[in-house]
Simulated scan of single mutants.
Amino acid sequence: MRIIYVGIACLLLQACATVGSVDRPGSYYQEASGSSTDGLVEGAIFGDDDKKINELLNYQVKLPEKNRIAILKLSADNYWRFYSNDFTQLNDLLVESLITKLRASSRVYDASFLPAMLVSEKRTVPVLREAAARFQADLLLAYRSSCQSYQKYRFIDPNESKSYCSVEAVLLDIRSGIIVKSVVSTEDFTTRKSANDTNFNETIKKVELEAVAKALGNVANEIVVFMNNVPRLKNS
C-alpha cells in the first residue's frame, strides 16, 4: 500500500482557532424557577409564536445515558475524491478519525453518517429532525467545511500558497429541536510545491484535506466535552 504523507517542507500549520458555544450554567434554571409550570414567565401575555419561543428558551437540555449521533455533511467541497486513490484514502481517514473520536465518549454508543436516502434536498430543521429520528439518533451533528487561499501569496511566489480551512458545526437535539452546541474551527497553513510534485493544485488539495481533518478533530473534541457534562435524563 502506498504511504500517504505531507512533508514538513510542503505544509506548515501556522495558526488555529476553535470557538464553541458556552454551555448554560445551572444557575440559569434556578433563576427561572419562579416561572410557571409551562415554562413561561409569570404575568406575561403571549401569542402562540411567543409561547413557543419562550418554551425553547426555558428548555433544559437533558440527554440519555447513551446516545447515537447521526452525522450530516452539508457542504459539497471538491476534494478530488475520485482523482486518485490518495484522495479516496485521505477522505476515508478523515471520516474514520471523526467517528472514532465521537465514539470515544462514554455517553456515545454510536456515531455514524445519516443515510443519504433519508435526507431530502429541503434541509430544514423539521425535515432533518424527522430523518434523524427515523435513524433512531438522539443527536444530529451537521457540519460544513470550506477552504480559501490568500491570493497575494501566489503573486509573490507561484509555488507557494497560504490558505485556511474552516469547519462550522452544530449539534441538534432531536427530541427538542434545539441546537445544544455550535463549534467553528479554523486551520491556517502555508504550502509550497516541492520538486516531486507534478501538480501544485493537487498539493494544495491534499494539505486542505489535512487541515479539514484537524479542524474536524477539534470539533469532535468540543462535542465530546459537551457530551461528558450534559445532564442525564431520568430513567435513561
Rank of each mutant, 00 (worst) to 15 (best):
L140G: 02
V6W: 02
M117W: 05
V212L: 01
A137H: 05
V225R: 12
V61R: 09
Y83L: 04
V207S: 00
F155S: 11
E121H: 07
T191G: 05
R175I: 01
L118C: 06
A211S: 09
S36A: 08
D173V: 04
S105R: 12
V230E: 02
A142P: 00
K181A: 12
I8S: 10
S194D: 07
L93K: 15
G20M: 04
Q14A: 11
F189I: 03
Q151W: 07
S21M: 06
R2I: 08
L233Y: 03
F113G: 02
A111T: 03
L140D: 02
K234F: 04
F82G: 06
S145F: 00
R144C: 00
I4M: 03
L11V: 06
R2W: 11
T190R: 14
M227Y: 03
L209P: 00
T100G: 03
V125K: 13
Q136S: 10
D86T: 08
G34I: 06
D92G: 02
L216A: 02
L139T: 05
P64I: 13
F46Q: 09
L141N: 01
A116E: 15
P126E: 08
E96H: 07
E208P: 01
V183N: 11
R232A: 15
Q60E: 15
G47T: 14
N221H: 09
S75Y: 00
D138A: 08
Q14M: 12
V225K: 13
L40R: 08
K181D: 10
I156P: 00
T37V: 06
N218T: 01
V230K: 02
I8A: 13
L90Y: 00
P115S: 09
N159M: 11
G177R: 14
K73N: 06
C10E: 03
M117T: 10
N78W: 03
S146N: 13
K193I: 08
A104D: 12
F46D: 03
K205A: 05
V212K: 01
F46Y: 08
S27G: 02
D38Y: 04
S146D: 06
E65K: 15
T186S: 14
K66D: 09
Y109Q: 05
M117A: 15
S84A: 04
S105G: 07
K205E: 00
D86S: 07
E168M: 10
R24E: 15
G34N: 08
I69W: 13
N218Y: 11
L40H: 12
N78Q: 06
D157C: 06
R192Q: 15
I3L: 09
E42F: 03
G47N: 14
K205Y: 02
A104C: 04
P158Q: 07
G39R: 07
P158R: 10
K66R: 15
D110N: 14
S105W: 12
Y143C: 00
F82L: 05
A132N: 02
S97Q: 15
R134N: 08
L72R: 06
C10G: 04
S194C: 14
Q30L: 15
F82W: 12
A104Q: 12
G217L: 04
L72M: 09
A116R: 15
I4G: 02
A116M: 12
K122F: 10
N78T: 06
E130C: 04
T100K: 14
Y153V: 10
I69F: 08
G217E: 01
L114F: 09
I178N: 13
R144Q: 10
G34K: 09
S105E: 11
K101M: 07
